[in-house]
């Protein structure tokens, strides 16, 4: 396992995000399942039972980069659904490839400089770092206040 991957997985562990094997994912795809059109999500396309991420119980989505320093998943808005598919459902599964790993946020900016250039920019770049959470009531940590209560990560088998 590469050092970047080791650090990334360690960070996910600290954020309460399990890293599961593709085979283990099967059991999690219950209820209304939305699967995004990312190429890495193809293996689960047949499991989709819901076309609208607003109504889904589970969303499966790809991503554009993985940040080892913070355990973040980066998504650029695209014709493929990336915003609602990582925001609306109680359970969000992100599929990423080891090849997408970078050390820090600055390297994501370098890699996608062309899609951040004024006049040609993607509408939105989001770094997702763990599930939705709040500590507003007596500093008690509660997950899923608006977005996913649980985030799960899967390494694509072909390396993404």
């Amino acid at each position: 396992m590469s050092e970047l991957r080791r650090q990334f997985e360690e960070r996910l562990g600290q954020l309460g995000v399990p890293v599961v094997l593709p085979a283990e994912l099967e059991a999690m795809l219950t209820g209304k399942v939305f699967v995004s059109e990312h190429a890495v999500c193809k293996p689960w396309a047949a499991r989709a039972t819901c076309a609208d991420p607003r109504e889904a119980d589970v969303t499966v989505t790809g991503c554009d980069a993985l940040v080892a320093e913070t355990g973040s998943v980066a998504l650029l808005s695209a014709p493929v659904e990336t915003r609602l598919s990582t925001l609306m459902a109680p359970l969000n599964v992100v599929v990423g490839g080891e090849r997408q790993l970078v050390a820090d946020m600055e390297l994501v900016f370098e890699q996608f400089a062309g899609r951040l250039r004024p006049g040609a920019a993607a509408a939105c770049l989001t770094f997702v770092t763990g599930p939705s959470r709040t500590t507003d009531i007596e500093k008690t940590l509660i997950f899923g206040v608006h977005g996913p209560k649980k985030l799960v990560f899967v390494f694509a088998e072909d390396g993404g």
Binding site: G71, A78, P79, A122, A123, V128, T129
Partner: peptide, 23 residues
């Protein structure tokens, strides 16, 4: 280490590169 969601907003949806489904 980082806030749960860090978003860089760079414009409205439906760009020249193709229709975005949300935003």
């Amino acid at each position: 280490r980082l806030t749960a969601y860090t978003t860089f907003i760079q414009g409205p949806r439906a760009r020249s590169s193709g229709e975005e489904p949300s935003g």
